[in-house]
Computed example of a mutant assay.
Amino acid sequence: MPSPSVTWTAFAGQRLLASGPPAEVITAAKGALDAGEHESLLLFDDATGRTVDFHLRGTLEEVLARLQPTPDPAAESSEPRGPGRPKLGVVAREVTLLPRHWEWLSEQPGGASVALRKLVEAARANSGDADRVRRAQAAADRFMTTMAGNAPGYEEAARALYAGDRTRFNKWTRSWPDDIRDCARRLAAPAFTKEAP
């Protein structure tokens, strides 16, 4: 099941159906579908602005059951694991560095992997605000492209979003349908580091 901090938003055409935890949003979308909603239903993950492909067929209980994670057969195995490191979710990928970088890494306590993990964690801690702004810009832009890509002022609003200009963003989104405008502004809010009216 998605984490409790995850929020989704559902639209029927240009009308907001619900926004909140996935189970609540799915319940609202399923109710609208069962009531004969004729507008297209779209579900969005608020953190990414991407549409969520979720099947609403079946009873509400069946639909909500699809939110449950699929069990990992390897994790449920009762057989003891063999020798070696425990499964920590580590993913091996190729890293290309210059010889002097490899030399420095090999001199670090714990070796290259430990040093790289520490460097990544330090960079993540130092770039938290910039990452938050980038994620909000990307999420708002994806949502806007899907829901307001043909709306007047879309391109200007997108430019204002990436320029961090809340005043211009609000100006160019003002004429959009209320629910779309409000959702775009909500998703974009963390992208604006300076307060504006």
Rank of each mutant, 00 (worst) to 15 (best):
L105S: 01
V52H: 08
M147C: 08
P4H: 05
M1E: 10
V120G: 01
R124I: 01
V95H: 09
Y162A: 13
D72K: 11
R85N: 12
D131Y: 03
A12I: 03
A92F: 10
R15W: 01
A75P: 09
A130Q: 02
R93W: 00
A138Y: 01
G164D: 04
A112S: 15
L42R: 15
A18P: 10
G110V: 05
S175G: 11
E79M: 12
A47S: 15
A140K: 12
P80R: 04
A163W: 06
D45T: 02
R132G: 05
L60I: 06
E121M: 09
S175H: 14
M144L: 09
E24A: 13
V133T: 07
M144P: 07
A29F: 07
P152R: 02
A35Y: 08
E24C: 05
S77A: 13
F44H: 08
E39P: 02
A10D: 03
S5E: 11
S5Q: 11
H38P: 00
A196N: 10
P71D: 04
R85Y: 08
F169M: 05
V95S: 02
D46P: 01
K194R: 15
L41Q: 12
A148Y: 07
P177H: 15
G36L: 14
G84V: 09
L116N: 02
R159K: 14
D131E: 05
T193C: 03
S127Y: 00
L17G: 04
A136T: 13
G149L: 07
T146G: 10
A29R: 05
L98M: 11
E37N: 03
L88M: 12
A138L: 15
D182T: 08
W104D: 01
R117Q: 06
L88H: 03
A28T: 00
E94L: 04
R186Q: 14
V63N: 10
S5L: 08
S175T: 13
